[in-house]
């Protein structure tokens, strides 16, 4: 069973959060709060020292998580523990390749098998994915593909062949947390992706508010959204008061569940 295979057809909500942020213990509470809303997907970011594709907010979350020397094993244990109350929510890991490589691919898979439904390896392009994809699919874990506005049709076709789970469309050329959303362009590209693949297309990078979520749903053909930086930003908005953070997180997630 892979939860990603039974995602709804529309209004899919995926919430991203960095593991171990702000601390390991607090992180548990953050994820439990997220889980209590039963979003369709939770993306667990594994902190990395050099998150090349991430903007300042997720960078800061990575830094805070690593301040207490959080290990990969601790992050994976956290995910395992949370999976007890997973229900229908899909678990997806988002990380950089060096983390998986150094941990060891087989050991990594052993740790997440039957717990995690999908994995996004940000810096693993299609050209380098063969061996990893094979091992993952043997264990019923989907390798989620990213498509950017720079990916042309010919390349998209290659990338989307046999795609599973969902497709992550990067809404703007940019790092996580960038702001400009061009609905026309998003709609055009999502439409073209949907012609090539039947799995849901989620839009991510730069979704910040209930309004953004509604606009994506109304103005584009996308099947849902990924929200990340905006969830983390709340912590800094509230001057790092953790109890207040949990409350504002609750309110925000309720809002974006449309």
């Amino acid at each position: 069973m892979n939860n990603l295979d039974s995602l709804p057809k529309k209004k899919i909500l995926s919430l991203f959060m960095t593991c171990g942020f702000p601390t390991l213990n607090q992180s548990k509470k953050v994820f439990n709060e997220m889980l209590s809303h039963q979003p369709n997907i939770i993306e667990f970011g594994l902190p990395f020292s050099d998150p090349m594709a991430d903007g300042p907010i997720i960078q800061e979350a990575n830094k805070l998580a690593l301040r207490s020397k959080l290990s990969t094993q601790q992050s994976l244990n956290l995910i395992k523990e949370l999976s007890k109350s997973k229900n229908n929510t899909s678990f997806v890991i988002m990380c950089y390749l060096n983390t998986v490589r150094k941990f060891g691919l087989n050991k990594f898979i052993k740790n997440i098998k039957s717990i995690v439904d999908g994995i996004i390896i940000v810096d693993l392009p299609f050209e380098e994915e063969d061996a990893i994809k094979k091992s993952l699919s043997k264990n019923n874990i989907h390798l989620i593909k990213l498509i950017s506005p720079m990916t042309d049709k010919k390349r998209s076709k290659k990338l989307l062949k046999n795609s599973k789970g969902f497709i992550y469309y990067i809404s703007a050329t940019g790092i996580t947390g960038s702001n400009k959303l061009d609905y026309k362009e998003i709609n055009k590209n999502v439409k073209s992706i949907k012609k090539m693949s039947s799995v849901p297309v989620l839009v991510g990078f730069g979704i910040k508010s209930k309004k953004d979520v509604i606009d994506i749903s109304k103005k584009t053909n996308a099947d849902g959204v990924v929200i990340g930086s905006a969830l983390i930003q709340k912590y800094f908005d509230i001057k790092m008061d953790f109890n207040k953070y949990l409350k504002s997180l609750k309110k925000f997630i309720q809002e974006v569940k449309i």
Binding site: M52, A53, D123, P125, E128, S148, P149, M150, T151, I170
Partner: peptide
């Protein structure tokens, strides 16, 4: 080449 899909093309 280990970069995100935005840079790959």
């Amino acid at each position: 080449m280990y970069v995100s899909e935005t840079l790959m093309p």
